[in-house]
Design a protein around this nucleic acid. Sequence first.
DNA 1: AATGGGTAATTAATCGTTTAATCAACCTCG
DNA 2: CGAGGTTGATTAAACGATTAATTACCCATT
Lengths: 316, 316
Amino acid sequence: MASIKQIAQDIGVSAATVSNALTGKGRVSKDLADRIRARADELGYRPSSAARALKTGQSGIIGLVMPDLTNPLFPRIAQNLSIAAEARGLGILIADSRGSETRQTEALQQLVGRGVDGVVVVPQKGTSPEAPGLPMVTINTARDPRNTVSADHIGGGALIGAHIRELGHGHVVLLGGDRVSDVQQDRMRGMREGLGPSVRSETAWGDAGLTALPGLVGQGATAILATSDLLALSALSELSRAGFSVPEDVSLTGFDDLPFATAMHPALTTTAQDVSAIAEHALEVLTGLIAGAERPETGHAVPMQLVPRASTAAPR
Amino acid sequence: MASIKQIAQDIGVSAATVSNALTGKGRVSKDLADRIRARADELGYRPSSAARALKTGQSGIIGLVMPDLTNPLFPRIAQNLSIAAEARGLGILIADSRGSETRQTEALQQLVGRGVDGVVVVPQKGTSPEAPGLPMVTINTARDPRNTVSADHIGGGALIGAHIRELGHGHVVLLGGDRVSDVQQDRMRGMREGLGPSVRSETAWGDAGLTALPGLVGQGATAILATSDLLALSALSELSRAGFSVPEDVSLTGFDDLPFATAMHPALTTTAQDVSAIAEHALEVLTGLIAGAERPETGHAVPMQLVPRASTAAPR
DNA sequence: AATGGGTAATTAATCGTTTAATCAACCTCG
DNA sequence: CGAGGTTGATTAAACGATTAATTACCCATT
């Protein structure tokens, strides 16, 4: 309600002076500036973001496009991004690309229309969206050439793989949910690296893979390495249904350390992303781009951390 | 980049005419309007939301304040709200109140400062925030006098309770996570209603309640009714650690039907919220308030739905 | 031919803020 | 004492859209 003009009238100065006093930019005497600030507080003055955006061409708002808002990682990304954004005086506008690639570009367009200064995109599996003329950072995985920052999924996989190898396992199953996902591909690749050449590994995908699990364990596999915690939970269910117990008969690992990982029995060995560092870096690069900096030509990988819990043990 | 003025020059008319043609408000000849629209398309014209917001006083953006963005329900609320908002040409700006009540008011202030037209608030447990002069709807539960719309947690509890009673259970444990939560209180109340006077029920809270579970089952309880799915998963772990199997020895229910409910073994009997209907109603009321309508004096409860799965059975 | 009604367009003001350019004092120094 | 420098404030234009008021024109009616 209260505008700069209002304050100017009350104090008896020009609007420009009020603006200068409040933003600290021009030259205003200390005394007058104090009086202006005091009056502004009294009136509960808030600068109109619309007017400021119009004049400066910067909205102070960045867009967040997620492949699917119900993605279990979304809350943590959103929260950490929101914290990082707030520290920079930015707001976050969300847009859901709801699984479809066309919706993804629509969402991007929509954000542009709302005048965001830049966007953070977590791309749809296997796509790399563009927003011509708009500063944009991508959170995906090393495999994506456009990737700006992400968890080191390969390194995380390697941690899991090494952990399993060190426990003495010699025959394991890599369980993935979706072949199209770059992230899952990288996780698998990392796991193979970590397991090394001495460990025999085979790959299983999706529901079919899930139901094949008991058979594979019967054939001698002693560990199941899933590319996500949810998949690991499903695997656990499948295994216990078939009469195998974890970790006695077979070890099990997940990925991402979702909230339910500790609520499971046994608690799930998994790897955790430093989402806060990812968000921080993403916003750092984005604000740089907005300020006119060059795009770093190579993506940044934030190390993952192994979280050993009760679901892994030496094979018997 | 392209402005109304640009288009006006290109075609050789005044800016006002372009505005009229594009918004369809004033009087413009069909022919000219077509030419203007064509040129606008060519230039990829997008109205400046800042300018429009400044002039009209409406930003077309609503704020969403959540108690904790990592709340497992957040993704679904965010997604459905985002869909409902988009259908109305609105955008959603998120703010996290990160567990603290002061952060909650700060978040609200911040949104106001960004010029949102209204806010949707999911309040911190046990608080009811205010935003003077700003249209606001609250998603909480019937117990909250300020509640605008929410799932019918009491009714949902009653469904669970009745389901358990009909299976023939006579002694059950109600397991809650946090006494302060209005939502959990209402769920418990509903469960008691559904169980009726003939079923003996006792109440357990938090971690202490969780560890007490095996003992209570030993004393004859044949069902555990948790106020959330995550709690139910923890309960399942606790029970299987103690050698009880679900649902043979004891039945188990959750609340909310989170993604992992079907991945558990046994799959969890729970109740589902119609988040889409809640989001729709919230936005309906909010746009009404923004347009100057009266606040409905009573909150709206959206029915919950029982999702019977394998974790409940008749006691033996 | 004058009046009036309808249509199509223009003018001009406005929203609230920022910012470059300008101006008025006052001070200092040779 | 006048030139130049510093300080503290004002003026005025601009950002891009909306909108009420106005003008210009054409056509039909009396």
